[in-house]
Write a protein that binds this DNA or RNA. Sequence first.
DNA 1: CTAGGATCCTGTCAGC
DNA 2: TGCTGACAGGATCCTA
Length: 282
Amino acid sequence: MPELPEVETIKRGLKSFILHKKITKIEVLCDKSFVGTPALATVVDLRRFGKALIIDLDNGQSLMIHLRMTGQLIYDGEKRYAAGHPSDNFTAKLPNKQTRVIIQFKDGCLYFNDQRKFGFIKVIKTSEVENDSFIKKLAKEPWELNPDEFYEKLQKHKAAPIKATILDQSIICGLGNIYADEALFESKIHPETKSGKLTKKEASALLDAAKKVMDRSIASGGSTMATYVKADGTKGDYLEKFALVFRRDGKPCSRCGGKIVKIRVAGRGTHLCPNCQRRKDD
DNA sequence: CTAGGATCCTGTCAGC
DNA sequence: TGCTGACAGGATCCTA
């Protein structure tokens, strides 16, 4: 998915289009993608918990949206605002084959598209949002986590590769496959390093790097491919502009000129510069 | 308890 | 061209 910066981008953008607007109709095209009974109400707030987006309504209910791997939210009204997993859907005619839910407003439609159907929209009581099983488990985001706290957490998973550890939302919240790779590169840590082998200094550097790469992404409107269009017509282009290792295997490292490689860690494709990110002896 | 692998689902791409 | 397997910006469930 869509990692924290992308969901933050969605939240900020949607706010300007749907806040205080009434939902006039909800069409569910794929049962798996919508949990609960759709009700028509007015949007009173948009919030984000890690990678989950919450749309609060004035009937005491909230829509919890998780895009998982391939979810997208595309608002189509006077302007089009698209964010999430980048694809041609951002500019395509909608609804299409991948449209799972359509949330209609008086002057626009919010399309929830999701190729792989891992994502979902779920109706929950607003008062229960923070007790939701997913949200409840979320750890602090990098900006709220202090280095000592982070270091202590790493000791509880000392045998797991650091990449797996920082992808675990109950340890540190917000990173996904892109920003995990970028943060490890930025802090010069090999992704397979056992979490318990990191020094306090390295843990602190990694935390700083996580904040840095995500701050930069949020500032540019989230990462994306070329088809991504923001509300103002500009493109969010973290991958093109800022990614230094993600999907850059075979290309030279911007820091040392060495060759970026792709390996598999924790079941995920992982990009690194073997020269800058030295493996420690186990 | 942790760690690692399979799994949900659709689509695309590399390699035969 | 057609088939096959691998893989994908996530999280959960199962097993050891």
